[in-house]
Amino acid sequence: MSEQEKLQEFEARIARGEKIEPGDWMPEEYRKQLIRMISQHAHSEIVGMLPEGAWITRAPTLRRKITLLAKVQDEGGHGQYLYHAAETLGATRAEMIDALLTGKAKYASVFNYPSLTWADMGMIGWLVDGAAIMNQTMLAHCSYGPYSRAMVRICTEETFHKKQGMEQVIKYARGTPPQKAMVQDALNRWWWPVLMMFGPHDSNSPNSAQLIRWGVKTKTNDELRQEFINKTAPDLQLLGLKIPDPALHYDEASDNWISGEIDWDEFWRVVKGDGPCNKERLAARRDAHENGAWVREALNAYAERFEGEG
């Protein structure tokens, strides 16, 4: 078979709804794009542990503390499943981590914003995880088997992440004046970074069309963003919270909530490493990695010495 025929057969398989499995022929570009996407996604889960992880020790009730720790732990699990999916394409975890720590790999820019108050735990759970769920539900249908399987598992785990956040926002929005102020302030700071999570406009997203054709994605950035706004904006307003977008309005004709324009300069600045916490986040990951080197080495040494002895 010529490369051209292989490509045709590959695209026909995807059109029939088949999943591509490790070992199957795939265009080099498909492999490359998937490694890029999946490893970015994995890094996002891991770096995403940090802004919330910082508040585990300060959670105001025992129940919230346990929930938050379980959620942060789950995000680690998601990163673990995703690194696994990328490994099936020939990337190694060591290489991927190296790319993250040296600043070569990207991750979701939303995690480069600081978590400043406890109410951020509610807002992150509802909005950040809520946005992630929309993206992940789509990716569960992805044409690459291991990625879609990781997503099936992740999606079932995510539901509580969002709901525990929502539960907090509901409570604080109807709570004491300081709680109300705190949760409004959290919304003010997180709303725009969350909308940016869906990525640039379709017109500025060069890979989008091909990823859709190859069944990796089934919806565009703008479609997902619109779905998210439609789903979230009315609920936030119902709670008496004010969304920090004077241009936001409901459009009867399209049945959509139309938002104002995202500050794309800020978006690119943060993506390129110049957000409020980029350095801090990478430094935390680098510390964990370097401080753990002797531990990983020790277990290798033990395994070599006692191979087969159990």
Binding site: G53, L69, Q73, G76, Y83, A284, A288, N291, G292
Partner: peptide
């Protein structure tokens, strides 16, 4: 122990040690 969440030597053990903390 919960202070290790996100900072443990390797991902698998980050998850395992969080289980013990939980």
């Amino acid at each position: 122990n919960s202070e290790w969440a996100g900072h443990a030597p390797i991902l698998e053990e980050d998850i395992a040690f969080a289980n013990i903390a939980l």
